[in-house]
Structures are given as structure tokens and as C-alpha cells.
Design a protein around this nucleic acid. Structure first.
Lengths: 147, 147
DNA sequence: GGCTTGAGTTTACATCTGTAAACGCAAAGT
DNA sequence: ACTTTGCGTTTACAGATGTAAACTCAAGCC
């Protein structure tokens, strides 16, 4: 199996990855031009981010004449997935549902996406447990979180 | 309006907050005891985290004899909400729906929660746009992201 | 062939985070 | 009253992150 130790992508790095994911492959010139429009980052800053992403194994480089062509080494959907799951998993298990509800309300999604989510949930409903308990305290200390 | 500049809570600090949120109020002795069971953190580490949370304005202190009673200054659901929304907002708008779908599949939720989500989505369905476009490139560069 | 230019690399530095020891002091015990 | 204990504070330090200048070459132009 690949030694994909779930590379961690920081906020600023995320911007760079989005460019590469969207374009599938590009050179630094393009990345820098695009990011300079979106943020007021100096080219040097963007170069640093690209460098770190390569070192982290998030971007692959292919020598193309004098420069490099960058391509993503980790799939976008995969990164999104991991980031959200990590964030959620650090929260109280009992309250995750509510948090997701709030997020759903604030997130704009296409009709197809909404429908898809409904389907996913409908399939989940039958096997969902009657309740999920708070896991904020060490085992054996539960019970204080019911409201 | 309160000067709630949306305090940022780090991963380690989350553990502390969860204890306080769950217990509503406690002293450091309790926090330290509980966290020493969950992680192998030294008491000093936990003291540092508590101190930082107080300085950040996430925890309030009330002198109680020789010690302090800590209470949360920011509501748990609020913090969860902000954290998830921040994470999501840094991702490609077009792909958020799919990411949420994946998360939903992996997150254990009570039947009531699942049902609630279905309701939220059902209400959202009518007003959902036909499609949400990729916003990874600066304005005017779109179109490369359709697949 | 020498100079210019630009891509990638190195170095820089403040802040945040994880992790923790050391310290100052007031309360509690004897 | 004196000592001990424990709580909160100060100090420490490495690694990650945001931000960016400086430097090194090889490719491209005259």
C-alpha cells in the first residue's frame, strides 16, 4: 500500500492545492499569477508554499525544460474528506449531528447534492442507533452531559 | 454586540474545552485528572492549555477560595459550528456537497439526528440552485473544473 | 559566449502549537 | 508560626505556519 501518511495541508497551502487540483497540472508561473490575484501574497510566499507542498508529498514535479510541471499527488476529494473528518472527530460525538445540521443550513449546494445527501441519510436511518453518547469524559464518567 | 472575535481553539485546547463544556464548570484539579486519563499529558501541559484558553477568552475564571472555577465563555455548539464552517469554506464550493456526503457516511449519529438532517435538507431542496460552480480560480477563470 | 531572466532553493523571522519544567505564593495542616 | 502542598504563572523549546527576501543556476537572448 502507498505510504500515504495522510499529508497535512495548512490553510495557505490549501489555496495552492486548489489551483493545481482544478487545473490538473500547471507550472509555478501560472500558480503564482492566479494566487497573486486572489490574495496579496508576494511571489516569494507562493514559491515557499509550493516548495513545502512538494516536500510534503502533496505535489509531484515533472521536469519540463527549465521548469517544473506540478501535479497533485493526493486527490482533492480525499483531502477534503480527511480534513472534515478530522475536525469532526475532535468534537463531542453526541453533538456532531447538530453541528452538521448547522453547517448544512449555511452551505450552498446544488439540488443534486442536496438530493444525494437525503439519499445517503435515508439509507442511514434504519441502522442509526437510538442515541449516541457524549464521549468528552474518560470512560466511566459519562452521564453528565445529558440535557 | 459582543467583541467575540471568534476565538481560535487549537486541537489540544479542544480537549480541555470539551471537559469544561461537559461539566459546565470545574476546577483545574478535575480537568487535570480527567485529561491525564485520556491522554498521557503531564499536569504542566494541561495547566498551560488552561492558561492559554483563559488568555484567549475561551474560559472564564471565578475565584473560589484558593483556586479558580472555570466556565466556558464560548458555547460548544458555536465553536463546533465555526470550526466546521471554516474548514468547509476553504474548500472548493463545487465539491463541498460530496465531501459532506462522505462525512455523513462515516459519522455515527442518532436516528433523531439523521431524521433532523433529512428535514433540514428537505426544506433546503426547493431553494437549492441547479448547480454551484467551482471557485478555486480567480473570477473569470472558471470553466476548467467541470468534469 | 556573456548577460539577463526567471524557476526553484535557502535563509529569515514572528507567531502559534504541543509539550513541559520551574517558580511564586497563599491556603492548609501540625 | 512553620512547613508543606497545590494552584496559577513564567519560562522553555522544538516544530508548524504565514510571510517574504536573497541566492543559485541553467536556459534564453544578443
Amino acid at each position: 500500500m502507498a505510504t500515504a501518511v495522510a499529508v497535512t495541508i495548512s490553510d495557505a497551502e490549501w489555496r495552492v492545492m486548489r489551483i493545481v487540483w482544478t487545473l490538473k497540472q500547471t507550472d509555478s508561473r501560472t500558480i503564482i499569477d492566479l494566487l497573486e490575484q486572489q490574495h496579496d501574497w508576494k511571489p516569494a510566499t507562493i514559491k515557499t508554499l509550493i516548495g513545502r507542498l512538494v516536500k510534503k508529498g502533496a505535489l509531484a514535479t515533472t521536469k519540463q525544460g527549465r521548469q517544473f510541471i506540478y501535479t497533485p499527488l493526493i486527490p482533492e476529494q480525499n483531502a477534503m474528506d480527511t480534513a472534515l473528518t478530522n475536525e469532526l472527530s475532535q468534537m463531542c460525538a453526541m453533538h456532531r449531528g447538530t453541528a452538521i445540521a448547522h453547517v448544512l443550513e449555511e452551505t450552498e449546494m446544488s439540488q443534486a447534492d442536496v438530493q444525494n445527501l437525503i439519499d445517503v441519510l435515508a439509507k442511514k436511518l434504519p441502522t442509526a442507533p437510538a442515541s449516541v453518547h457524549c464521549d468528552c469524559l474518560p470512560d466511566g464518567c459519562e452521564g453528565s452531559c445529558e440535557e
